[in-house]
Amino acid sequence: MLKKKRRCPIYDSKDITARKMMDLAVNDIKSNNKNKINLIWLEATGCSGNLISMLNAENPSADFLLKEMTNLKYNNSLMFAEGDAAYEQFLDTLETEFILVVEGAVSTRDNGQYNIIARYQGKAITAMEAIRIAGEKAKYVLAVGTCASFGGISAAAPNPSQSVSVPQFLNRQVIRVPGCPSHPDWVTGTIANLVAFGIPELDELGRPIMFYGITIHDRCTRRSYFDNGIFASRLGELGCMFKLGCRGPVTRTDCPVRQWNGYVNWPVEDNSPCIGCAGERFPDGMEPFVRF
């Protein structure tokens, strides 16, 4: 948990931005001639929205992360090669030092057959198998997004694909970077921390405390409305979203202070409730998302 020597943790966590981490990491690489670490970004049972979110990153941008900080070796959405050549790139990287990012849950039904990511020399490769073999060899494993971290939408009842989270599936340390999608700063900041300093301080669920240490409610931009009992009764109203079912009180992210997409807005400031998309029990335990 939070260390006592720090001053107000709210300001502390704001200071430790992804950019700062990236700068430190890049300096480290340059001054010590450290090798850039290889990166496998596997998309599994999800919507690939975490990759799209990561492309929204700015300072550091996505290309900065993928070119200056790491060597992107495998990613279905971005990579040049296709077919066997693509999968061989995955296999070759397993023999090196690499970070494994998984977005999406692990579909286990019928031994993974509901999510096939490649066919190599005639054999179907399931996402489940790819996560297993890469998970065994990776230096670090990041579960990016809520599906990979906790099962998320992909494991929503009745869970037709029998999806489980990456930490549940792999018998090793996995850093959870949840969010639906995960904020690009949470991803780039965590990777920068790994490159520059190793594993960041984590909470009991394996989430970096710098991003997930404090609930949304505790530093909500509409907290004073809550304290003064001014509640919105429908979406679109200026007021606290608590009575509409806001999950800010049980969701730990820094959305209110960080904000999204060029740091311009976030759901509560858009007059809608937080639906707890970064939470362990999303979505089933967070519904109804909106109640009147």
Binding site: K36, N71, K73, N75, L78, M79, F80, A81, A86
Partner: peptide, 8 residues
């Protein structure tokens, strides 16, 4: 985006 040139 990749640092090495692999193509098909």
């Amino acid at each position: 985006m990749e640092s090495s040139f692999i193509t098909s």
